[in-house]
């Protein structure tokens, strides 16, 4: 779980930043906090074996999404042809 946080922190921060006002000083602060939080998490996971991060479902999910997306596109194309 700790290692999964290493991916979730930048992902959530990158998405969350887009919700803030452009000129807000919180944009910089949020980015700094996210980067430092990730570093701290990395230090906590210092001795954690890499095998603990099990994300084997992600490529499968990606492939499935790709297949479903391709099928949806094909269906749309067929409908458009009619």
């Amino acid at each position: 779980m700790t290692l999964l946080l290493l991916l979730l922190i930048p992902l959530l921060a990158a998405c969350g930043l887009q919700l803030l006002p452009v000129a807000s000083p919180w944009v910089r602060r949020t980015a700094q906090a996210a980067a430092l939080a990730q570093l701290a998490t990395g230090l906590l996971a210092w001795r954690q074996p890499p095998a603990d991060l099990s994300l084997s479902w992600l490529p499968k999910l990606g492939l499935r999404l790709w297949i479903w997306g391709s099928m949806a596109s094909a269906c749309r194309w067929c409908c458009w042809r009619r």
């Binding site: 930048p10 992902l11 921060a13 998405c15 930043l17 980015a31 980067a35």
Partner: peptide
Amino acid sequence: YGLLLATNL
């Protein structure tokens, strides 16, 4: 910052 963090991801 969003793109920097995406690179990090």
